[in-house]
Amino acid sequence: MDYRQFRAFVAVFEERNITAAAQRLHLSQPALSGSIRLLEEALGTALFVRKARGVEVTDDARALYPQLRRMVAEADDLAQRFRQRGARARLTIGVEEDVARSTVQHLAATARACVPGLQLHLLAQCEGDARLASEELRCEDELFLPLLSERYVLALPDQALPPDHAAGTPQDLATDWIVCPSHASHQRLMPIYGSRADTPAALAGNFSLALDLVAAGVGRAIVPETLAQAIPGVQTQPLGLELKRRIGLCYNAQALGNGALAQLRDGVLGA
């Protein structure tokens, strides 16, 4: 006995007609009749009696129907769940350095809202259909989909300033800078560093490493606010000027061949 025989039995029982049951299952009448015959042989009993118009069900068929109907329904439901999983939209996104966890969470929530049932795959750095990064890291051949904007702040070690210290500009402070000369933002920040940029307290490869140095009391740094908020031992102060960066998805036009990315882009732009 197998699933095909059970489906054939349920269809004939419910339709009371071989022709109608065969059409329902998209089978030929001989194939359907053969499945019923094999099931009857396996059970050792007749299940249907052919009449001029349709069939009549036997008492054994009436007893068998509830159990086989449940088994067929469970098998159909299981197959449907696996088919739906196989058909789920997939999107792979690389997460560049210096993107805060809160920003990654914002991306994930946005993607799920724009693409129901999405299977999101996050990887480190330059991987996948798109990259979650600051606009400064966009390559020349890439498009950019902005997701959020955040300001730069002055990051200081805890207790570096008294609680009642008034906010001012970085130039108002006796600042031992921690700089990131290899970072794409460095040129934008140079006017703020001033003459002290030539003699920094320390150098770091990215903002996250700079914040580790700040927390250790080495000096002060200008960093995106979301990154600084996540580091224990660091406090922030406004810069006294509007300096921001945009975070979003960098991707090639060809990547829009992935329907999930195209759907995410359309959802963000239409919001």
Rank of each mutant, 00 (worst) to 15 (best):
T226H: 13
A201N: 10
Q5C: 08
R265G: 04
Q254A: 15
L25C: 08
G259W: 11
A202Q: 09
H106Q: 08
L249M: 09
Q105K: 11
P170L: 12
N258I: 10
I222T: 09
R90V: 13
R245H: 00
L91N: 03
G44Q: 01
T236K: 03
R88E: 08
E40N: 04
V234K: 13
L120K: 07
P238H: 10
L78Q: 14
I93P: 01
D176E: 07
G117Y: 10
R88H: 05
F82S: 09
C139D: 10
G205H: 12
L107N: 00
P170V: 09
R90K: 15
I93R: 06
Q237N: 04
R90Y: 02
D98K: 03
Q254M: 10
E14G: 01
H121S: 02
L47W: 05
G248M: 06
D141P: 00
P157I: 03
S28I: 05
S134H: 12
S182M: 07
L122V: 03
A87K: 10
V179S: 06
P224E: 02
V99H: 04
L269N: 03
I222C: 11
D198W: 05
R7V: 11
L211D: 01
R83P: 00
S208C: 07
E41S: 06
E97F: 12
E15V: 04
A31N: 12
D2K: 15
D98A: 11
G168Q: 10
R138D: 00
E140M: 05
V104S: 00
A210E: 04
G205P: 10
S28G: 09
A130M: 11
S134A: 11
Q5I: 00
S149E: 15
I192D: 01
E135H: 08
V214A: 01
L47R: 08
A79R: 14
D98N: 11
Q263Y: 00
E41M: 05
Q5H: 05
A253G: 01
S33H: 07
T19R: 15
